[in-house]
Design a protein around this nucleic acid. Structure first.
Lengths: 90, 90
DNA sequence: TTGTATCCCGGTATTAGTATCACGTCCATG
DNA sequence: CATGGACGTGATACTAATACCGGGATACAA
């Protein structure tokens, strides 16, 4: 076992992350946003449903651009309460 | 063969992305930043050298938090090729 | 009813990310 | 010179993300 098998909280973070994206999608259809972001509808669905808890950075960036949401806010909303934000002693 | 085998410009984007992270790391050591971000040094090295052109979103988020850089700026600096790929022939 | 459009889920296939191991190198220190 | 730190690279292992395929359910219009 060499790779980290996705912690439970990572799964939950993925669900929350997908919920944020779905909320940002609003009334627009998945096909609409997926096409705008340049990803497949299946991928968008998996991310929104949390079945893809840790999507690629540029995938999220494209979705964020298509949805008009900030990546920093997304990361902040999902990464809070985790050591991912440590090291800010600067 | 169903997955997109990473376009050449995606590879270049990954190199540029890694260069940005390395620049943001400054004089700090890889071990330092990798530990702060919660990723392995090898992963950070691969991302910086561009051998991992499309890292995970939260990995980038952790690195961005450890380095004190904005995810939006990172995506903007590298993701501009997203829509530019339509007319980018070079 | 039929047709269309949206959403949703299962499986499948391939690539890619992440982590560990082992090697070598450079530089600074003892 | 020897040692230790950090950097770099190659190989290896395993999980995960992405895309494609088929299915289904619901809602609305013709």
């Amino acid at each position: 076992m060499v790779r980290t098998p996705l912690s439970p909280w990572e799964r939950r973070r993925g669900e929350h992350f997908g919920a944020l994206l779905r909320a940002a999608r609003g009334d627009r259809s998945m096909v609409e946003v997926a096409a705008a972001a340049g990803v497949s509808v299946e991928t968008l669905r998996k991310i929104e449903t949390g079945r893809a808890p840790t999507p690629a950075f540029f995938t999220v960036a494209a979705l964020g651009a298509a949805l008009g949401v900030s990546l920093d806010e997304l990361a902040l909303a999902c990464g809070r309460g985790e050591e991912a934000a440590e090291g800010m002693s600067a």
